[in-house]
Amino acid sequence: MERDFELLLTRRMWEDPAFAELAERDAGAALKQLGVEVDPAVKVRIIQQREDTLYLTIPPAKPEDELNATLDLNQMDLWFSGDMFVWLSSVYNKVKLLGIRSSIAKGKGEA
């Protein structure tokens, strides 16, 4: 059976309130429970969307003398997986994101 990282994570968040709380508090620990290893150099945040909340992602601050300089972190990718899951990733972390997704497909995560 093909593994779908987004489906497994979403289903677990919906069905297990303790897991959902852990995922929002410590994404790395929650993903580890699914058998997914995250590169320690990458920080992951998992946020369960709420109907009454507007989410704003602010780019990192730049020194005043660099306000017009290009910053790779401002280049964000927005991915949709199916009808329910959204990835928001910097261009730099896109390769790490692909590794996270593929690790579940290789059978490292739970069934």
Rank of each mutant, 00 (worst) to 15 (best):
W87D: 02
I100D: 00
V36W: 00
D83I: 03
A29N: 06
R101F: 02
L98D: 04
A69G: 15
P17W: 08
D83E: 12
E6N: 14
M1K: 05
S102I: 01
T70W: 08
I46F: 00
V86A: 05
V42S: 03
D83H: 07
G107C: 04
K96V: 03
L8C: 09
K43T: 11
I58E: 08
E15P: 09
P63Q: 14
E37D: 11
G28N: 10
L34S: 01
A30Q: 01
K32R: 13
R45E: 07
G99L: 01
F80W: 15
D83Q: 08
A27C: 05
K96G: 08
S102G: 02
L7M: 12
L9T: 00
Q48M: 06
E37A: 08
D65Y: 11
Q48D: 02
G109T: 01
D16N: 09
P59Y: 02
A111I: 12
I58L: 09
A29L: 13
V86F: 01
M76P: 07
K32S: 13
R25I: 11
P40K: 14
S90H: 01
P17F: 09
L88V: 06
A30G: 02
E66G: 06
M76D: 09
P60A: 10
L67W: 13
P40F: 12
L9Y: 01
E24Q: 13
V91T: 15
R12H: 15
L31E: 00
G82C: 01
E110D: 07
R101M: 08
Q49S: 13
L98P: 00
E37H: 07
L88R: 10
E15F: 11
L56A: 15
D16Y: 04
Y55I: 10
S103R: 00
K108D: 04
L34A: 00
V95F: 03
E66N: 11
K96E: 06
L67G: 12
V91W: 15
A105K: 02
W79Y: 11
P40W: 14
L8Q: 07
E2K: 11
S90E: 04
L56D: 13
E64G: 08
D39E: 06
D77Q: 14
R101W: 02
M13R: 07
K62Y: 10
Y92I: 09
D65W: 06
A29M: 11
L78S: 03
K108A: 04
V42H: 03
K96D: 04
R11A: 03
P40C: 05
I58V: 10
L31M: 03
M13K: 05
E66P: 11
I58G: 07
I47D: 07
L54T: 14
T70G: 15
L67N: 12
M76R: 03
